[in-house]
């Protein structure tokens, strides 16, 4: 596979390390009343999507950026690649 890095252009997937569902960026608030339940859901309950999947890839053999890659799990078509840091800042999940 090839991931089209937003800063570096197309790079072979072998330069990257896969983590999984981009929902991992939405870490719950540790002080919420139901924090335990939220953390349980955050860590263990993932959707196993056949189709468009937003997922985290780390450019370990590159610029060390974490990326949010939108990939179709059926066709491997990649329709969007963003720097995770931008996504995290924009979507305001930073706690």
């Amino acid at each position: 596979m090839i991931i089209n890095h937003p800063l570096l252009g197309p790079r072979d997937a072998s330069e990257f390390v896969y983590l999984g569902d981009a929902a991992l960026m939405k870490r719950p608030d540790w002080q919420a009343d139901d924090a335990a339940q939220q953390f349980y859901e955050y860590l263990y309950l993932r959707d196993n999507i056949a189709g468009q999947h937003r997922e985290l890839w780390y450019h370990e053999q590159g610029d060390r950026s974490w990326l949010v890659v939108t990939r179709n799990t059926e066709t491997h078509e990649i329709t969007a690649v963003e720097l995770a840091r931008d996504v995290a800042t924009r979507e305001g999940h930073a706690v």
Partner: peptide, 13 residues
């Protein structure tokens, strides 16, 4: 890698 994840994805601020 884990620390970069925390830095970029969890606490970008």
């Amino acid at each position: 890698r884990h620390m970069e994840f925390a830095r970029q994805c969890l606490w970008p601020d």
